[in-house]
Design a protein around this nucleic acid. Structure first.
Length: 155
DNA sequence: GCCAACGTTGGC
DNA sequence: GCCAACGTTGGC
């Protein structure tokens, strides 16, 4: 099992939005970055665990846990010419972009803010700290445990 | 709203 | 294949 951090702007899609889904699952579509795409297509597996991160807000933070319920498959939003994620280079034969499905887990008892993450030297290697633009990031098991402890929950 | 970081595009 | 220009992300 692998661990990940998924970023989202809560004004676009939030952890509470995921909870409100009728089946608490969501297609994680619209990712248009090759490195993140490779993780979605090649590495992320069913039951992998996710730190759910809210970006582009006054207090960016990890707010909850989620998990993967379907591994990578073609992101068909790239094929819709009327959609905002349309990519003319994608086709049914060569999908180019991929998505996974995720399921709501549970909120952290105390959110783990970016500020707290930056203060912890054990988390200094997280891409969030120095490569914050990557929207899907691998998380080590050590980082996972530290963040859950900081968040006041157990796995 | 600013701007640094960084990814993508396109001319050559 | 290089690299300048440009666009986007996201913290502040």
């Amino acid at each position: 099992m692998n661990y990940w951090l998924f970023k989202t702007e809560p004004g676009c899609f939030s952890f509470d939005d995921l909870k409100k889904r009728p089946d608490m699952t969501e297609h994680w579509d619209g990712v248009r970055n090759y490195q993140a795409r490779n993780f979605l297509r090649d590495t992320i597996q069913v039951d992998d665990r996710i730190l759910f991160y809210h970006s582009n807000i006054p207090e960016p933070a990890i707010v909850g846990l989620a998990s993967v319920v379907r591994a990578g498959y073609p992101d068909t939003t790239a094929l819709d010419p009327n959609g905002e994620h349309f990519d003319p280079k994608a086709s049914v034969e060569k999908p180019l972009w991929y998505m996974v499905d995720v399921r709501y887990g549970k909120p952290l008892n105390k959110i783990v803010t970016l500020e707290r993450i930056k203060q912890n030297p054990l988390l200094a290697d997280m891409p969030l700290v120095n490569r914050s633009r990557l929207s899907i990031q691998p998380v080590t098991v050590q980082e996972w445990q530290i963040i859950l402890t900081m968040g006041g929950v157990t796995g």
